[in-house]
Design a protein around this nucleic acid. Structure first.
Lengths: 181, 181, 181, 181
DNA sequence: TATGAATGAGGGTTCATTCAT
DNA sequence: AATGAATGAACCCTCATTCAT
């Protein structure tokens, strides 16, 4: 029965991500339950609060991202790793629409600070290596990079960037990141 | 009593901006009324729909921005005008928190397309002049600039940038915008 | 100034009748004011309560009807007077739509009992004469006739009878009223 | 829990009928909930809109009436069936006060056209048989009969007829319906 | 006196959360 | 453990009524 429960938890999580993506911040718990193919009671058994669900989604996403960073680090040179990661993230941003909206709307942002901090460390390592390799100017900090990253992701998400727009914007930002004072 | 009414309308508008800023998109009409020091009926007399209120705030803000652009254009050289405007906007973004969030997440965006479009034209003129003066690379379009602008504003707003952060991020973006090939 | 006031009172009354007719029970006091071409404050100066307005409309209508009965009585024979009045009333019923609806919906019905009672006496006299002339069966009372009258008026109003329907239904009822035991 | 739900649905329906009857069209959803002994949310779970609730009551009532017609048809001769049905309906009308009022005054009528049409066919069959048996004059149509029926029901309902009044009015109408030439 | 802006109780409806099955 | 019906606080909005001008 533990196996069933775990599968349900995963299903709900996936459904929540999908529904937030489609319906935005207005997504209801019932929509999520329906999409997951479970009763609404089951959603609440696993995530006693909508906030918990949100928290879980974020944590989950960040964990996957951390794995991805590690992968990139081990496969390529620091510069490529850094820029590829950045690009990938902005491109994928579209998938996080509703979650971001909800985060912005509820006072939940503090609740996800911990997972974000964990992830931040990873990103900072990525940046440090790229800087050590001379691929990124030395006068930007991890927070600046994260700020840029978040900003572009949010807008990508909000205004629905296509590939051309992505490329154009990233070219500017990357040139800026690579610039010597 | 026309005078009173006008004063109240302004009060409500200001209160709405403030409350959206503090409470995010979840702000209640009642909170706004309370903050404005009027009854809830008064809010609805002036803005029959929450959406109308939102629309009014956006229009109002964009109008002020347009005025500002014109000012900058007439006082300085194209490069300074462009970069100052960009900077100013991102800095002020913090004051528009809730509104931006609302814009980004509700289905209300279409309702404000007209003021946004009007404003876009103004920004494009600013850019064109800066490019003609050689202060901005020629391979970025108005939409790219707006995308960057919106992205940074949103994040500034969402994550509460202070001045230092603003400066750091803008330095990177400006270097990117100024970069040759 | 008294003349202005009286004219306004009449205007409001007429507007109210018209608006109730068009908008039904959902008519707002503001619609009435607008239609009367006065401010909403003026409506309330003359009729401190919506209920008062309703009451005034009913009283007004019933007074006009009483006048009409007297006219018919003095001009024709009792049978014609009775049947013409009945016919006329049902035909005109369409004009009372909203008022009837409001009466039915609010608990105001008791408030108009007095004017109705006054009118009832008039109708009963009409009936008595028609019965004395042998034109209406003797075993129906004034209340029965009023009940029939009201029933047909209401339905005429509610379901929008045309002339053909009016005629067909009245033929049946008149035959019933004329029938010997 | 399907059983509980069904019981609650029925309770709400019954409560709604009762409350509409007492409070008229102005009946509040909360009054209904209170009367049904359930939370307001339950009312909305079963009838997502006040209009839906209305629709359900009408449909329900008409269905019961259709059943009753069929019963009468199979048990007695056409004349008795017709007149008994007519009598029964007007007598029961007192129990449908609010619903009739609602039907008569809101824009909801269109929503219940289908059940009404179905029922009309039934009544027309009843009439046709009574006419074939010579119990009803041949020059009245189904619509005329329905008009009379509705008118009497509405008034019965609006003005609270007792049995004596019912009998007196119906005697007149029945004589009219039976009249030759 | 006339005006119309301001008021706020109250209505319909939604949805996170609880709880009986 | 899973279900989904029940709950009710809270939301947006309306409109009769009041009151400052």
């Amino acid at each position: 029965m533990r196996a069933d429960a775990r599968r349900n938890r995963a299903r709900v999580l996936a459904a929540a991500e999908a529904v937030f993506q489609e319906a935005g911040a207005a997504a209801t718990t019932e929509q999520i339950a329906r999409r997951a193919g479970v009763g609404i009671g089951t959603v609440f058994r696993h995530f006693p609060t909508k906030s918990d669900l949100l928290h879980a989604i974020i944590t989950d996403s960040l964990e996957r991202l951390t794995v991805r960073v590690t992968e990139l680090e081990s496969h390529g040179d620091p510069a490529t790793a850094f820029y590829d990661f950045f690009t990938e993230l902005v491109r994928q941003a579209g998938e996080k629409h509703g979650v971001m909206a909800l985060l912005a709307q509820t006072g939940e942002a503090p609740a996800v600070h911990k997972p974000i901090d964990a992830w931040r460390a990873t990103v900072e390592r990525l940046l440090a290596r790229a800087q050590a390799a001379g691929a990124v100017r030395p006068d930007v900090g991890g927070d600046d990079v994260l700020a840029l990253l978040l900003g572009l992701c949010q807008t990508a998400v909000t205004t629905g960037w296509d590939d051309t727009r992505c490329r154009a914007v990233l070219r500017v930002v990357f040139d800026g990141l690579a610039a010597r004072h």
